[in-house]
Amino acid sequence: MSLSEFISMGGYGFYVWMSFGMTALLITAEVVYVKHQRKQILRRLQRMAQLNAEV
């Protein structure tokens, strides 16, 4: 099977890749978002700890 045959999926490439693409996109976005959220929480908690230490 050549690459172009693989992409065209027998003429149904649009439907197949829109489905797999959205799945990949959302799962990636979810992981990135949760990791980003974790960094933000840690940063905020550290700032709070610093403020508490200064008082």
């Binding site: 999926m9 027998g10 003429g11 149904y12 439907y15 197949v16 489905s19 797999f20 799945t23």
Partner: peptide, 15 residues
């Protein structure tokens, strides 16, 4: 690639 009733779009099934 081809099923008795469906064509390659059946692969959407895997997600």
């Amino acid at each position: 690639h081809i099923l008795s009733e469906q064509k390659q779009y059946y692969r959407i099934l895997f997600v």
